[in-house]
Amino acid sequence: MNKFMNPLQTRNKEEIFSAEIREDIDRWIAKYPPEWKQSAVMAALRIMQDDNGGWLTTELMDDVAEYLDMSPIHVYEVATFYSMYELKPVGKHKICVCTNIACMINDSDAIVKHLKEKLGIGFGEVTEDGRFSLKEVECLGACGGAPMFQIGRKYYENLTPKVVDSILDGLE
């Protein structure tokens, strides 16, 4: 008697991601009840985004869906709901500028203006050399250091145009 595994699942989980990525995602899966693998979807998307130069393709989202036994549309829903997932290419350094109230009244406008002029791009755009992209974000919870922005994972606070110059110049 032969009882098959689902043959429509054409790929083994090992074939979907590299060992390194799997280890990273599996570490998250382990945090949740076994029947709630999908709890790791946000982490998995973040891991894949980081691995792909900062943005997610449909194929990557499909891979995440397959890896976590979710329907692809469910993963698209998650990826389009949270603002930290990017569905278009971003710069090597994604500059997320807060313009919410505390930053605004501390003249984040000047920071934004300076960045736009210096980089020659607007919000949602990438510099031609692919090094920078600009994004307007909501309050990042660092209002005491307003105005501020985040580049990659790091917060930079108490910005002035001069400080901005030295930060950007110091990036690889």
């Binding site: 549309i73 469910h74 698209y76 389009t80 709901f81 603002s83």
Partner: peptide, 19 residues
């Protein structure tokens, strides 16, 4: 089968298959 979903957030939320 989950074929339709609501992607995007807030006013930008749309129903569809996304792809």
């Amino acid at each position: 089968v989950r074929e339709l979903g609501a992607t995007g957030r807030g006013e930008h939320m749309t129903i569809g298959t996304f792809i």
